[in-house]
């Protein structure tokens, strides 16, 4: 990825080894009588960006919540680099290298932008007692955090309260914070929700910039511009099931996908 010149991602040109990073097998999740996820199996491979599309209520966020450890699956298994992770406590999933952002942004609003990123620096989260002893906060941690802020174009905002950031910056800060955990897999839950065309364009560039720091990205999105620009492969979901899988062209013209989206105003989604 480092020397690929202009970073376009035509389908099929993966930079990673292509071996599976995340393997989900016949996963189900029921809330009471409602089957939110109904037998989903999928893999995310090293080097790829997987786009997940589907109408609201299709189960996309539930899926991400299970992968990141927020929900426990009703049945089925999730493996990350070969290790079974369903049922692990949240922080263990995080430490293994799965980071995420949230559909409704969940920053630590009382902290500054820099503090948000510093909170997530891996050496501190895994060794909290050593973190207390490092009185002069290690230069390395600050450099790491500032570098991530800079990557997301937030250097000038470093000392601002996270709660005061404009919408687009808050989204970028969430990505920077996720990257501070040194993840291998990044899950983005509707990163472009509520953004206008120009902001979405910037976000696409930002996601391309962070791509080479990660093994793989899984991306939920309603915004088809972003999905087309970034996804190497797309999975379409409806009613908790996978209805189509393949390149963006194949999936987005698939009759069931068209049907699922028909009559849905994309602008109102999210």
């Amino acid at each position: 990825m480092t020397d690929s010149g202009p970073e376009t991602n035509p389908p099929g040109t993966l930079d990673g080894t292509g071996k599976p990073v995340l393997e989900i097998d016949s996963l189900t999740k029921a809330f009471g009588g409602i089957q939110a996820i109904d037998g989903v199996s999928l893999t995310v491979n090293d080097g790829e960006i997987l786009g997940i599309v589907g109408p609201n209520g299709a189960g996309k966020t539930v899926l991400i919540n299970m992968v990141s450890g927020f929900y426990r699956p009703t049945s089925g298994s999730i493996r990350f680099n070969g290790q079974k992770i369903d049922g692990l406590p949240l922080h263990k999933v995080g430490r293994l290298g799965i980071a995420r952002t949230f559909q409704n942004i969940r920053l630590f609003n009382r902290m500054t932008a820099l503090e948000n990123v510093l909170t997530a620096i891996k050496q501190h989260t895994t060794h909290p007692i050593l973190a207390a002893l490092a009185f002069a906060p290690s230069r390395q941690g600050i450099d790491e955090a500032m570098e991530l802020l800079d990557l997301m174009g937030l250097t000038a905002r470093a000392n601002q309260g996270a709660g005061e950031l404009p919408y687009g910056d808050a989204r970028r800060l969430e990505i920077a914070r996720a990257l501070a955990t040194k993840p291998k897999l990044l899950l983005l839950d509707e990163p472009a929700a509520g953004m206008n065309e120009q902001e979405t364009g910037e976000l696409i560039e930002d996601i391309r910039k962070v791509r080479n720091r990660l093994d793989a990205i899984a991306l939920i999105e309603h915004d088809m511009t972003l999905i087309r620009a970034l996804s190497d492969r797309i999975i379409a979901m409806n009613y908790g099931k996978i209805v189509a899988e393949g390149s963006s062209k194949e999936v987005l013209s698939h009759p069931e996908v068209v049907e699922a989206y028909l009559g849905t105003d994309e602008e109102e989604d999210g």
Binding site: L90, V93, F108, T119, K122, T126, A180
Partner: peptide, 15 residues
């Protein structure tokens, strides 16, 4: 502070 402000987000960051 993170643990107090949003426990589950803090946990997902590895805390």
């Amino acid at each position: 502070d993170a643990a107090r402000e949003d426990e589950s987000v803090a946990a997902s960051l590895g805390i």
